[in-house]
Design a protein around this nucleic acid. Structure first.
Lengths: 211, 211
DNA sequence: ACTCCGGATAGCCGATCGGATGATGCCGGG
DNA sequence: CCCGGCATCATCCGATCGGCTATCCGGAGT
């Protein structure tokens, strides 16, 4: 069998979380934490230097590029590591973006240590590891129609959340009021609502808008 | 000078965070982690047994009572410990509730370890320790009028976010449509908006509603 | 080449909303 | 004891919204 020690790099902007994962992971005989990074740039550098088997990636990295983008970057490196996303949220959008970026697994931070260890080992073996709640969510969404809002519609949603009326949105976007209404109708259909307030709530819930 | 070792109990539902704080705090000569708890009941039990000087309290504890309520509980114990809130969010509502519950400090989880240590020591000495961002926010809000929505108005907001019309809300709440409109008007005034969509967005932003 | 989709536009109409104004009853703090 | 906040209800009215039906254009994909 290949490597006996799985080399792990941690990417998380929270010192506390890094310390926690390091403490837990290091205590495992077959797992070594060979590096840490607090942001995207650091992550790329550290991964390039240490050539880990697995990268534990947080999705929210503070200012610069997020975890999804960083996942892309490290996956584009020569002999790229497997990326296991370890984050707080399990939004559909987050999961999809991460998987799309080349993540091999998705775990939540409230997972018990055991699950974390198993996930790291599985990921290192090339397996795809999803937290139960994430897997469930994915299946749910896969069954139901995927509501993908267009860029323009997102703009509308943004203005909507600011409480603008159709007329005001029209002025803001330099289009006619009819166009705004048209977009809104499409948004309602896609989000499965029929009021502006509901659209805003659903948009925020699905992370189409950020509060 | 009193105790040379400051006894600390951790309350957080995330194993990873507990491990992280424990690893960081334990490495300090003058700080001892004498207990951990993952939920409110456990917290009260552990604090009662270990009589710590400081409790590091997360505000979101999963299912049962939250961190604010738990803070009240441990502060009501005989010879209560100081409570230092250590959480992810710095919402005005969260801060106020925590302080009201008897918390002596408020730190964010992305704080550097140094700051955490200083906060623990300060809290143990009875000082009030606020994260800079939290302090700033408090001053801001203290200057501007505090918009406190009534319980009934929160109910209205909840239904609003579900996209219900005034008539439907009225039926749901067993009141007349006029009453609903009245509440809405008050909500608009308090939140500084003039549309339902804006109200929902602002309510979520101010954490009056949870997405 | 042809189709599908996002984006833009138009008009119609009933339902709803938001603002203004005013009134009543209850409770708790000053 | 009186005031203020909360909750309740009522009416009026102009502005807006949401649903419906149709058309047009340009780019991406088959």
């Amino acid at each position: 069998m290949g490597e006996q020690h799985i080399r792990v790099v941690l990417v998380d902007d929270h010192p506390v979380v890094r310390a926690g994962v390091r403490a837990l992971v290091s205590a495992q005989d077959d797992l070594d934490v060979v590096g840490e990074a607090a942001d995207s740039a650091e992550a790329v550098a550290v991964v390039g230097e240490t050539k880990p088997d697995v990268v534990l990636m947080d999705l929210s990295l503070g200012d610069g590029p997020g975890g999804a983008e960083t996942t892309r970057l490290v996956r584009d490196l020569p002999s790229p590591p497997q990326v296991l996303v370890l984050t707080t949220y399990d939004t559909e959008a987050d999961v999809l973006e991460a998987v799309d970026a080349g993540a091999a697994g998705y775990l939540l931070k409230d997972a018990p240590p055991d699950e974390l260890f198993r996930a790291i080992r599985g990921t290192a073996r090339g397996e795809t590891v999803l937290a139960p709640s994430v897997a469930t969510r994915l299946l749910q969404r896969a069954a139901s129609p995927a509501p993908k809002v267009s860029p323009r519609e997102v703009e509308i949603l943004r203005l909507l959340a600011r409480g603008l009326g159709n007329k005001e949105m029209a002025r803001e976007l330099l289009v006619s009021e009819a166009t705004v209404k048209s977009h809104l109708s499409h948004i309602y259909t896609k989000l499965g609502v029929d009021t502006r307030a509901g659209a805003v709530a659903t948009a925020i819930e699905r992370r189409i808008l950020r509060p």
